[in-house]
Nucleic acid binder design. Sequence first.
DNA 1: GTGAAAGCGCTAACAA
DNA 2: TTGTTAGCGCTTTCAC
Lengths: 339, 339
Amino acid sequence: MPTILDVARKANVSAMTVSRVINGSGPVNEETRRRVEQAMKELDYYPNSNARSLVKKETRLLSLLITDITNPFYTTLARGAEDAAKRLGYRLIFCNSDEDPAKEKEYIEMLLSTQVDGVLFAPSGDDSLKNLRLLRKQGIPFVLIDREVPNLECDKVLGDSMLGAHKLMEHLIENGHRRIACITGPKHISTARDRLQGYLATLKLHDLEIDPSMIIETEYTLGSHQEVMQKLLELQTLPTAIFAANNFVALGAIKELRKHGWKVPEDISVVCFDDLDLLQDLDPFLTVAKQPSYDFGVFGVQMLVERILGTATSNFRTIVLPPEIIIRRSSRNINAALE
Amino acid sequence: MPTILDVARKANVSAMTVSRVINGSGPVNEETRRRVEQAMKELDYYPNSNARSLVKKETRLLSLLITDITNPFYTTLARGAEDAAKRLGYRLIFCNSDEDPAKEKEYIEMLLSTQVDGVLFAPSGDDSLKNLRLLRKQGIPFVLIDREVPNLECDKVLGDSMLGAHKLMEHLIENGHRRIACITGPKHISTARDRLQGYLATLKLHDLEIDPSMIIETEYTLGSHQEVMQKLLELQTLPTAIFAANNFVALGAIKELRKHGWKVPEDISVVCFDDLDLLQDLDPFLTVAKQPSYDFGVFGVQMLVERILGTATSNFRTIVLPPEIIIRRSSRNINAALE
DNA sequence: GTGAAAGCGCTAACAA
DNA sequence: TTGTTAGCGCTTTCAC
């Protein structure tokens, strides 16, 4: 591949002049500029960004670290991040931690070597603290998205898990449900804690009994939630509704319910956090707390770039993007006659 | 951030020795190695891969260029590519062309500057040829995935669109369908052409009439396919089944059918290419030709890396991964009584 | 087993 | 408006 020197020779100028043409970083005679541009085109020259990064000490590379690339919440977020990064002149490296802090650490080390300018970070859980400290120690700016980590001051773009859970619960209670099970995510993930918190708080608010056997913890990932549902279905008194902590958990629950011959919503109502856009097209079915996932990505990248450029206030900021409750067929009024 | 020289000073050796420790690229005394490793740890040293790339003329970076990051076919493919890349010691940059050759070109130019070692390339269409030629001119190895481009010899990992379409059509015909509509993708995408071809060939095979008004072209993306369906629903004689060229097209079709009060499969059957894993959990519904998307990514990266390392045969290779037909509820026997 | 010198492709800083 | 020099952090080459 041709270098800046090849271009310089061909245009009969110095490398410095070519550099100025490429970057618009100094005065260049119109006629000279034309010659240089001509030479670049003829040689199919593309500047080597490694070399540039080495001297400029910036790569214009950001990283988006998410925990599950198959979850539509994160892919839509990724779209938002990508669009914003492009608009601001940054490239984006995607990393997928698979909800695993060890894999997350490997990626962080890779990113440190890559010299990314900043990281948009969806932590796999509270254990991510070590990894985040590593970034901070090296002076790499980061913005937390979707989940937060205790004992860490930093920029954040979060949803409102408490509020969303509360609204979903209010909806169920309004519709006559009194025995509501909660299938929550891992305790080491902040959104799981907050959603459980919202569940509990709303029950208390209505003086409803809190039955620990109705609260079951599972993974956030798609896959078999068999044992979890087994536990639930073995209860003496069965719930009339399920509040699931995210979209994949809800899918897993419904799948298991089906296996056991339960119909949603006839036999049991189901509501959850996060929408599934695809599904909504096929059959508007699940009642959900939909989060503006695309905006998570956009705001995240904007905050990150402001932090990198130093145009942000020195204080850390938190942006909260509230969910929207969408009521569909999966939740029904328990007193209404079945159609 | 500390450099190799900082480590060298701390360990009382030269930079060269540190380099040898990092890369295992030469003999180092056990005791010296320990001192160097100690120093690296104490300084939180991570080698600058830009500097390394500059001299080694390899970045160990691959790019995965796909056309739609929200399509589960591609996200699963991405997982496969990511896992394989990691295993082989490569980093992966995701790019999303959005089915747009212009955006695709911008990304290619960016990748040229980034000095990626190779590109896993799902072309936006036949117009990608220019972009691919650019890569070839610069000597960057690439592997085409999912779609091919006419007049270009290169490594490829493809599905078998003809076969999948044929099998889906056979399934419909076996179940008594005679008037089958085809909602196909853009003509400039190879898979759309092949699927249409499979549709036509199977009709001919069974001496069934080919009615051009039953063949409608639309986009591969999720979104409203209103006008397309409008055309279909205005036909004199209506089809009893629809063959949709991909998952998103099928979703769009079903959505529109619903709007017009048509039920699937009671009023009309629908089959399509590519599965939707999420959906399958909620309600095993769509009859599909499922492609092994994860393997597309794995094989693609493997081929690419072999090409980069020069361990591949000099001849270009094509891997074909056939689809699997999964029959579900969206297609029914037209003569069977409704339940 | 270890180090010194040179250079990868580019740009900052200064000089002309 | 243009060019020269030096150096970013690393590895290759060759010498010891």
